[in-house]
Design a protein around this nucleic acid. Structure first.
Lengths: 373, 373
DNA sequence: CTGAAAGCGCTTACAG
DNA sequence: CTGAAAGCGCTTACAG
């Protein structure tokens, strides 16, 4: 009798009186407990518990009695208490840099969707790349008894905190960024390959001076992309000019500022490979102000393929890092690990791919490429 | 002695032996309990509990002894058990439509940031506008003992589920969308005003036939924006032409398809007010294909001010709905309600504002308007 | 200022 | 197939 919306007067009275008889016992809140369900169904607490979980060692008749009692009393299962007793956990922690970045929100979509299917709930934490915040989040998550953690670690953070958590028996999956020296489960993309295909594409378009702009060299993903950049140049017998490597925050503002430095170079490049799309977009804005036509005067390639990349004019050619896929893989790996703590560590590396649009010169595209969502 | 990273051989041995003495008792996992801390500090469990929470009724000497013991044993506080016993909850549930939509991810940013400050963790659920999923999520959250819920309800959903939850003593804050008949705490924007300022702006630019495109009339936000549209037309003595009201999914694809219908009108409009930016962007893509120049041949206004709006060419004039602010207000309101269940219901309505860019004709803008992030 | 006992809501052996 | 008892890790009155 939990039909509160349009009950007859009788229903409501019945309901009220009925619950009141229990509230007198509990004296506190109208919170129905399994004890009360059992009592109402005329069975023991243990039996009610088994019945509620659908155990096969309970007769159908009893199960139905218990179910009816749960309905009538408006019972709400207390999963928290159950988890405490049975020493399981249905929550997992997720630690990322921030949410206001399509890469991470897409990562979250992938992770959340996959974990949801497995009946797990996620506790979210954002570090804004602060090591102290990361430490605090990890503690909070441990206190909240997470059954596992997925983390995109703060750049430059040691592997110690992660090892410590693993030693507590809590599985950890690293995603996207891997602290140097960290081992164990990892899901990421092949940054080196990504950098290489981007720069290789520019070289094939006859560019000879190519800058690498944005991001910080302490990021493992930066190092990978840079390595790919180096490789592509080396394979083409092109020199590496350190004055064309500009670091900056991985934001629009960062790109807006950094591109100025690039263009101030006495011998400016004809193409720019950006650490990510946000930087590429910021750079394009500045270039627009400077009257430099991207796709004509200067070629640009980004990284990530965020939604804005398909929208900006000219549309941005970029390396897709498939964040959603990254997320679902990380979630699946964590899930496997939680069920099976003793299987050997896994490393999953996704292959990025080049999405060719307009920012390196014209290309025919159909609207299908740019729709979505 | 939880310094596992680079311990001397002696440290490690000591540590191991020490913990082993407890593991023998527990026999299961190397999980340190408050009981063990108390024992090691030579106090009772109650005293250790008080000390850990920094109670003032514990002497400094005792507190320090306990703290030392926690350090040495590597104690991890079990907030879940504590919450169970003390009947409090530090988690709140958040139910939104989806994450892969900048409006909602920004909303999440605002909510998460604010709740984090208050030491609460959020359990996330996405409905994809399915009523059944919403019901399932609500149940899951109740089972997980959330202390409150923030929900952007599925369109057309009755207020019954929400009332039911409130009756269980769990505060609910509605955000953005309000089911008809629902009362209680609500945070939203003034959709009517938003629609009115958008259409009013178009009228001031001498448009006389203005379409309203996208979204579904069952959404309370659609109804609000439509009402503002009507009001603006009425105040200008312009007729309302039902053939210019086109519903569609609130996505890029929806806008892409809907704008075709609009242009097929025997007497097509000169301006379009879109239900949201995603629709406006989809429409702009289609118009580009049709060779219709937005800002010249046709004026467009969006709603939400998502990041893409500042990036697309021409840059989209739109009504900002301040999702992040919406989120932080909702979180703060929920927090107030949780601390103080008996204060009267509040309704917070934020004022939208028109962000003038280029899609209704030229305007000078500085790069400062379009940077950010 | 500190301790012994009871209990939060559930599940897990163990009998029968 | 079902029940009585013990316990998950913590906190809350209640004595002293």
């Amino acid at each position: 009798m939990i039909t509160y919306n349009k009950p007859s007067k009788l229903d409501r009275l019945y309901d009220y009186d009925y619950r009141w008889s229990f509230m007198k016992q509990e004296k506190k809140r109208n919170h129905v407990t399994l004890q009360q369900v059992a009592q109402h169904a005329g069975v023991s607490r243990a039996t009610a518990s088994l019945a509620q979980r659908g155990s096969t060692s309970i007769s159908t008749a009893t199960r139905e009695k218990v179910q009816a009692a749960m309905q009538e009393l408006g019972y709400v299962y207390d999963r928290v208490a159950a988890n405490l007793r049975s020493k399981v956990s249905t929550t997992v922690g997720l630690i990322i840099m921030e949410l206001a970045n399509p890469f991470y929100s897409e990562l979250l979509v992938g992770i959340h969707h996959e974990l949801d299917k497995a009946g797990k709930t996620v506790i979210l934490g954002t570090t804004f790349d602060s090591y102290d915040i990361q430490e605090r989040l990890l503690s909070t998550m441990l206190e909240n008894r997470v059954g596992g953690i997925i983390i995109s670690a703060v750049p430059g953070s040691p592997s110690e905190p992660i090892d410590r958590i693993r030693r507590l028996g809590i599985p950890v999956v690293l995603v996207g960024r891997r602290p140097s020296g960290a081992n164990g489960d990892y899901v990421g993309i092949d940054n080196e390959l990504g950098g290489q295909i981007a720069v290789d594409y520019l070289i094939k378009k006859w560019h000879r001076r190519i800058a690498f702009v944005g991001g910080f060299s302490r990021l493992s993903s930066w190092q990978g992309r840079k390595k790919g950049y180096d490789t592509a140049l080396r394979l083409a017998d092109l020199p590496i000019d350190e004055s064309l490597i500009i670091e900056s925050p991985a934001t629009r503002q960062g790109g807006y500022d950094a591109i100025q430095q690039v263009m101030d170079n006495p011998n400016p490049p004809t193409a720019v490979f950006c650490y990510n799309d946000a930087i590429a977009i910021g750079a394009m804005m500045k270039l627009d102000e400077l009257g430099i036509k991207v796709g004509h005067d200067l070629a640009i390639v980004g990284f990530d393929d965020i939604p804005e990349a398909a929208i900006i004019t000219p549309r941005l050619t970029t390396v897709s890092s498939f964040p959603r896929l990254l997320g679902s893989n990380a979630a699946r790996l964590l899930h496997t690990r939680m069920e099976n703590p003793d299987i050997p560590s896994q490393t999953i590396i996704l292959q990025p791919s080049l999405i060719i649009r307009e920012s390196c010169g014209h290309a025919k595209i159909s609207a299908l490429n740019i729709l979505g969502n």
